[in-house]
Computed example of a mutant assay.
Amino acid sequence: MSTRGASFYPLATQLDDLLLTRERVSGGAMLELGLCAFAHGLEVWADEAAFTTAQADEEVKFAAESLIPAGLFSPEGPERPEAAEVFLTGRVLEAGLRENLATGETFQHAIVRTLGGSYDVLASPRELAAPLEPGNIIQGEFWLVGRVMSGLAEAPRPGLMHRLVRA
């Protein structure tokens, strides 16, 4: 689906700020989401040539930039709720280790380009043989979490809400 030169893909996404934004979404509004992809199962290749070589004997081959909304498919059929999961293959544009200020744990952060755009990818360094580097190709299963970046209606003013409650 496309509108005004932008492409849209069906993705189930967990919104981290749903309670704060739910009432600010207007019907038919276009929302822009910032997406983080949390890795659970990740493979890494040095570059696209190594990725292509690794797939030489595989029956199913993936593009170096591809995304499958795996959470929208289920062997149980439509009775199973959608899950915020994707199978992503992409090119690392930027990478570095960061520290979670709440836990003190180190995590791998990367900006990864894939079909449809770029994602912030987060992974445990324990899942990786070496830190990610620009040019690497990664592939794996990811949990998508989004935050609304733009498109919300104005938040009600606290004074107005107070008057509405007291009336």
Rank of each mutant, 00 (worst) to 15 (best):
R4Y: 08
R4E: 15
R4V: 05
A6F: 14
T13Q: 04
Q14D: 10
L18C: 06
L19N: 14
L20G: 03
L20I: 02
R22P: 01
R22Q: 15
R22G: 07
E23H: 13
E23L: 13
V25A: 05
V25L: 06
G34R: 11
L35Y: 01
A37L: 06
A46K: 12
E48Y: 08
A49V: 03
A50K: 08
T53N: 11
A56G: 04
E59W: 11
E59I: 11
F62Y: 15
P69W: 02
F73G: 00
P75S: 04
G77Q: 02
G77I: 00
E79N: 04
P81V: 11
E82A: 03
T89W: 02
R91P: 00
L93K: 12
L93H: 12
L93N: 12
A95H: 00
R98A: 12
N100Q: 08
L101K: 14
L101Q: 14
A102D: 15
F107Y: 15
A110C: 11
L115I: 08
G116F: 10
G117M: 07
Y119V: 09
D120N: 07
D120Q: 10
E127T: 05
E127L: 07
L128N: 02
A129I: 00
P131Y: 09
L132M: 02
G135R: 04
N136G: 03
I137H: 01
I137K: 08
L144N: 01
G146R: 05
G146Y: 09
R147F: 07
R147M: 03
R147N: 09
S150L: 04
A153V: 05
A155Y: 09
P156E: 15
L160C: 07
R163A: 13
L164H: 13
V165E: 14
